[in-house]
Amino acid sequence: METATPNYLLIIGGVLFVMLNVAALLIWVERRGLALFQDRYGPNRAGPFGLLIVAADSIKLFFKQDWIPPFADKPVFILAPAIVVVTVLMSFVVIPFAPGIVVADLNIGLLFFLAMSSMGAYSIILGGWASNNKYSLLGAMRGAAQMISYEVFMGLSLMGVVLMAGSFNLSTIVEAQRGMWFVVPQIIGFVIFFIAGIAETHRLPFDVPEAESELVAGFHSEYSGMKFGMFFIGEYMGITLISCMMVVLFFGGWLGPDFLPPIVWFILKTAFFLMIFILLRASMPRPRYDQLMEYGWKYLLPLTLLNLVVTAGVLLWLNDGFR
């Protein structure tokens, strides 16, 4: 334990540093990516390939006036943006980036991730409520309903993976995929987790809590400066988190041919899913709010339960042959 401590701190520091920078870098990746997909230039003036837009954006966020509306509920208003960043960063604790590179290899890693994502719903509802603004409140109510609903399928869609790996530990789940990635037998689980992941991070096309064309900016209408920045960064870290989880649970984590080190495989796979998130934003229209809920409860929930039952049945048959 004594000798492991500096290494341990190094991992914590490294994960924090990389995640915060990835979130910042994603600002640029997203804006350039969207421009590419939509046949525009995007920010290409500041620095090489417009990379300095990241610095410009961050500096702007840090130094903007941090205004708390007089009609807002001050303590809750301040607390809300912190919750989103804290819960997302806490989730990264359990993600195994490569063998040995994990902050805490918890036995209940997967449940920890689900618990943190259910805590994340508070940031939206509290932010929207504390703003004391009609648009914010509408966005918050939508966000809460959406996140509570999709959390259900998110948890259930992962249970197939848990059944196959026989553990909640994320490293064990990755090791269990040596023969075959879980995306093959659990393709339904993967698709549902992907959809639920988009809804959980309230990204386009499921960004009805902010829906700028109808609700100004939804739950964060009243936020400015770095408090808005926290929501902003929280969203990018959220999609990084969901991408990491997809890689860990369905795409074999760090596993890959030997010519690249494990961590590189992990980063490549994660980057692929990040690009998918951006591509989705560029290409999909936003569904109506009731369509979103109906889609979740009427199609995804039965499908998830069916997937779970079939997976359990097949596993039981393979192991015991229904003696």
């Binding site: 209940i108 618990a115 259910s118 805590m119």
Partner: peptide, 10 residues
């Protein structure tokens, strides 16, 4: 503990 957070606190 995990269930407590997911079910109750959530």
């Amino acid at each position: 503990a995990a269930l407590e957070v997911i079910v109750y606190a959530g």
